[in-house]
C-alpha cells in the first residue's frame, strides 16, 4: 500500500484539545514542526506535554482539532501518519526476554524494513553497540538504552521523530552524545519534536520552543527571541539568579515558582 506525501510542514497540530473525563489536559494547542527543525515542548509537570505528545503519537484521540504528519491525519489515516513518525517513549518498553538484535528485527518488521544479520550488526555499530546484539535491553546502561531507543525510533528513516524526555537520567557525556545524534537527524532534513525539563538542553539543541502551561501554549519562538522578548518582564527579573537572563528564568517567570505535582 502506498500514498503520496505532498504537504509540509512535517507536523501540523491545529487547535487540539484533550480531555480526561471532565478534566481538560490540553486546550486548543497549535504548533508546527518544519523539515530540518528541532522543536522543544517545555512545561512544568502536568502542564499537558505528554498528553499533547500522546495525541500526536495516536495513543489518545483529541476531542477537537486536527493533527497531520506529512499531510496524513493521525485520526483518519493513522497507519500512514505513524509510518512517517519515529517515537521514543519515556518508559522502557521492550519485552525483557528479547535480545537487542531481536528487538531491532521486531521493530524493523513492524515498520516494513528488511534487516539481514549484517544490517543488524551495522546498525548497532553506528551506535557503538555492536557487541550488545545478544544482550537483553535491561543489561544495558541508561545511555546505551537511550541509544538503542533512538536507533529503533529512526530505523525506518521517518520524516518526524518524537522524543519524550530523551536525556532524563543520563550523565553529561551520554547526554552530549545523544544531542549529537538528534542534531544528525535534523541534518538529514527530518523534523524532531522533543519534550524536556532541561532548559540547558532546550537552549543547546532546539531551534524553536513552545512553553506549555495548564494545557495552553503560552509562548512559542526561538530560545534567543524568547529571552530577548521577556528579559524586561518583572516576573522574569525577579527569578533571575546569575545576573543575566536565561531561558530557565523566562520559563519560571512565565509558569510561576510553584512546584507542580
Amino acid at each position: 500500500m502506498s500514498n503520496t506525501l505532498e504537504q509540509l510542514p512535517i507536523l501540523n497540530v491545529d487547535r487540539i484539545s484533550v480531555f480526561y473525563g471532565q478534566f481538560q489536559a490540553v486546550k486548543e494547542v497549535s504548533l508546527e514542526v518544519r523539515p530540518g527543525e528541532i522543536f522543544g515542548l517545555l512545561g512544568p509537570n502536568g502542564a499537558g506535554k505528554t498528553s499533547t505528545l500522546s495525541a500526536i503519537e495516536g495513543l489518545i484521540r483529541p476531542a477537537t482539532g486536527q493533527i497531520k504528519v506529512v499531510g496524513f491525519d493521525i485520526v483518519g489515516q493513522p497507519l500512514y501518519a505513524k509510518a512517517n513518525m519515529g517515537v521514543q517513549l519515556q518508559a522502557t518498553s521492550f519485552q525483557p526476554e528479547l535480545t537487542i538484535a531481536d528487538i531491532l528485527k521486531l521493530y524493523a518488521g513492524v515498520y516494513g524494513v528488511k534487516l539481514t544479520k549484517e544490517d543488524v550488526f551495522n546498525r548497532l555499530q553506528e551506535i557503538k553497540l555492536e557487541d550488545a546484539a545478544e544482550k537483553k535491553y535491561g543489561q544495558l546502561s541508561g545511555g546505551q538504552q537511550q541509544r538503542v531507543s533512538l536507533l529503533i525510533a529512526t530505523i525506518h528513516n521517518p520524516a518526524l521523530v518524537l522524543l519524550d524526555e530523551p536525556t532524563t537520567g543520563l550523565d553529561p557525556q551520554s547526554r552530549r552524545q545523544l544531542w549529537d545524534r538528534i542534531e544528525a537527524i535534523r541534518a538529514k532534513g527530518h523534523g524532531v519534536l522533543l519534550t524536556t525539563h532541561s532548559m540547558e538542553e532546550a537552549e543547546a539543541v532546539c531551534d524553536r520552543i513552545a512553553i506549555i502551561d495548564h494545557g495552553r501554549i503560552i509562548a512559542i519562538d526561538t530560545p534567543e527571541r524568547l529571552i530577548a522578548l521577556h528579559r524586561e518582564d518583572p516576573e522574569v527579573i525577579s527569578v533571575s539568579r546569575k545576573g543575566r537572563i536565561t531561558l530557565e528564568d523566562v520559563f519560571i517567570g512565565l509558569t510561576g515558582r510553584a512546584v507542580r505535582s
Binding site: G58, P96, Y111
Partner: peptide, 10 residues
C-alpha cells in the same frame, strides 16, 4: 512496561 504502547505508535 509500556510494551503495548511502544507497538501502538508503530
Amino acid at each position: 512496561r509500556g510494551v503495548f504502547q511502544r507497538l501502538r505508535v508503530a
